[in-house]
Every structure is written in structure tokens, then in C-alpha cells.
Simulated scan of single mutants.
Amino acid sequence: MSTPDFIRDLRVSIGHQLLWLPGVSAVVLDDRRRVLLVRRADDGRWTLIGGIPEPGEQPAETAVREVEEETAVRCVAERVLMVDTQPPVRYPNGDQCQYLDINFLCRPVGGEARVNDEESTEVGWFALDELPPLSEQALARIGLATRDEPTWFAPPSPHPA
């Protein structure tokens, strides 16, 4: 994911300090029950599509925009699959971020899957039983997309009495 300008501007003031940011990811599932994945240019891993909303942008709009920017596939967001806080990450340049991720199930409505920006080296549709190696997090999200269940979220921690 390339760094949005508004975050670059913030970094001028705060340096590498931890930033709490919204994040959006998408499980794009077609009518043949294949999932759209990208191979990241920075580390070579296959992953779901995601990104950071621009200021004022609705999360579903971000999911749709990111899918098209990265893969040239047009889609519609159909439902929220999961809302969760990701562990903090430290990037090679020292920047620290922690994301509140909203994950959407999306349905493709047009376009031909291809590498459409510098963030990935490959794009592909994968049958659910022929997925490349993926993180547990991506597999969990894909699993949620294949079931008709309520949105997943971590339950609140119990308060001490």
C-alpha cells in the first residue's frame, strides 16, 4: 500500500511515532467462488486488497477504490465481514502504525484482473481450494466471506468488579 499524502505530511511533524489509522480490506468473491488476490511488490506475499481511506472517504468507497486501483476490477461492497484492531507494525523506514481494519465482502461487476499499479507484481483469481500461501488473517476473512454469518468483531473485555 503506498503512503497517502496526508500521512506523509503528518510524518513531517511526528516522525516515526505510532499512528492509529483506519484501514479497509476487501474479499472480492466472484460467481464462480474465486477470490481476487494480489502479490505485494514489497515482500512478494499474496494477500487481499486493502488500503487507507482518504480523509472524509466512506470505508466501502475505499474498498471499491482500492480494488480498482490495484487490480482494474470494478466491484461493489456488499457487506461488512469483520472489524478488528491489527497489531502494531513497524515499516522498514521506522514508521509505526496500528490499523483499525474494516473488511468488506465485494462482488466484481466489471473490468479484467491485471496489475494496475506499482503496489503489486501479480494479480489473480483463485479457487477456494487452490489458494496460494496466505496469512491466517487473510484465510479467516475469506472464510467469513463464504459463510452467511453476522459481522465478526472481538467481544469487549470484561470489566473488573
Rank of each mutant, 00 (worst) to 15 (best):
42 D>H: 15
36 L>D: 03
52 I>R: 05
55 P>I: 07
24 V>T: 13
33 R>V: 08
26 A>E: 08
38 V>D: 07
32 R>P: 00
20 W>L: 13
42 D>R: 15
35 V>L: 01
53 P>N: 06
31 D>A: 12
53 P>I: 02
50 G>R: 10
20 W>V: 13
49 I>N: 02
31 D>Q: 13
54 E>Y: 14
42 D>F: 14
43 D>Y: 05
31 D>R: 14
22 P>A: 15
52 I>H: 11
26 A>L: 02
24 V>K: 04
53 P>V: 03
40 R>H: 13
26 A>I: 07
25 S>E: 11
51 G>S: 06
49 I>E: 04
50 G>V: 02
37 L>A: 14
34 R>F: 07
50 G>I: 06
39 R>H: 01
24 V>S: 03
41 A>W: 05
55 P>Q: 06
20 W>F: 10
22 P>I: 12
23 G>L: 04
20 W>Q: 14
20 W>I: 10
46 W>T: 04
28 V>K: 04
24 V>E: 03
24 V>M: 03
17 Q>R: 14
41 A>Q: 14
52 I>W: 06
19 L>Q: 13
36 L>T: 11
19 L>Y: 01
47 T>G: 10
39 R>V: 11
39 R>L: 06
52 I>K: 07
38 V>T: 13
27 V>E: 00
51 G>A: 07
16 H>K: 15
17 Q>W: 05
39 R>K: 15
44 G>W: 09
21 L>R: 15
23 G>E: 12
29 L>I: 12
43 D>A: 02
42 D>P: 00
35 V>F: 03
38 V>G: 07
36 L>K: 08
38 V>M: 14
21 L>Q: 13
32 R>F: 07
37 L>E: 11
30 D>C: 00
23 G>K: 08
48 L>K: 01
36 L>A: 12
53 P>W: 06
34 R>I: 12
50 G>C: 01
55 P>V: 07
